[in-house]
């Protein structure tokens, strides 16, 4: 099922007829969508519908597994990133990713953020420290950790760890941030704060998120894509999706009937 753009102006991402395979098994079928800058796109749908797989198209993380491959085209800013010649390092510097489980590295808080920066830039000590501070301030973690930057990242709470991971991503100036159920391992209160943060991040970044549940999609996203069995069923502005779904499958899912 082809799904057309929400908005043909101001297109930042355009996915064209993407099929995706685990070995011989096809898991995404003819995915098409467009998305514009500085807005939040939520991928919703039942478990196993291919949301996370779709999300990993944008930074080609599936390339780590040699048995997986994608066909079609994904344009970010007009460049097809599925092109084998497109530079993965450049791509991934441009596209940050937050995982379901917080993934701090086994090192200090400071080193965690410096890790990404050092990969891409040669900096003096003071500029490095400055960038680390800015990143932590952006995610509102600075005040909590400024006195223990050299403490081990594993000593942070899960919520703080997740914030640290976001800070680590934005420290290298991405344009697009992918989030795969970022609040799944976090308590409800911190999850609420993280949602607020996501809302503020969209001023600077474009975000694609697989939300933890429908409520979260409703709260944070501007646009929603409904997935089922690897196919994009419906793509609409989020408020419309909940108030006035046009597709029967979507409606069933949202109202809790089986799809």
């Amino acid at each position: 099922m082809n799904t057309k753009a929400f908005d043909t102006n101001n297109t930042y991402i355009e996915v064209q007829n993407v099929d995706f395979f685990y070995g011989k098994k096809q898991v995404l079928f003819n995915n098409c969508l467009t998305h514009r800058k500085n807005s939040i796109l939520a991928l919703i749908g039942p478990a196993g519908a291919g949301k996370s797989t779709h999300l990993r198209l944008y930074n080609r993380l599936f390339d780590l597994h040699k048995d997986r491959h994608a066909q079609g085209a994904v344009y970010i800013d007009g460049i097809n990133i599925l092109d084998q010649k497109y530079d993965l390092i450049k791509l991934r510097k441009n596209v940050g990713m937050i995982f379901r489980q917080p993934t701090p590295f086994p090192m200090s808080i400071f080193e965690n953020i410096a890790y990404g920066i050092r990969l891409h830039y040669k900096l003096t000590k003071s500029t490095l420290a400055e960038r680390v501070r800015v990143a932590l301030e952006t995610v509102l973690l600075w005040n909590e950790v400024k006195d223990r930057l050299n403490g081990h990242a594993y000593k942070l709470t899960p919520a703080q760890q997740q914030l640290l991971c976001i800070a680590r991503s934005i420290a290298i100036d991405p344009e697009l941030i992918l989030m795969d159920e970022p609040t799944a391992e976090i308590d409800a209160i911190s999850a609420g704060k993280l949602e607020d943060l996501i809302g503020t991040l969209k001023k600077k970044y474009t975000i694609i998120i697989v939300p933890q549940n429908l409520q979260q999609a409703a709260r944070v996203s501007d646009f929603s894509i409904f997935f089922n069995d690897g196919r994009i069923v419906e793509a609409v502005p989020t408020n419309q999706l909940f108030t006035n779904p046009t597709n029967k499958q979507t409606e069933d899912y949202i109202t809790g009937r089986s799809v």
Binding site: L61, L88, M97, P106
Partner: peptide
């Protein structure tokens, strides 16, 4: 854990950078 490796690659690290630094 493979998530940790994924996180490093998603920051744009090369394989050797991931091995060496992480």
């Amino acid at each position: 854990p493979s998530e940790i490796k994924d996180a490093s690659y998603s920051l744009g690290a090369t394989q050797w950078e991931t091995i060496h630094a992480l």
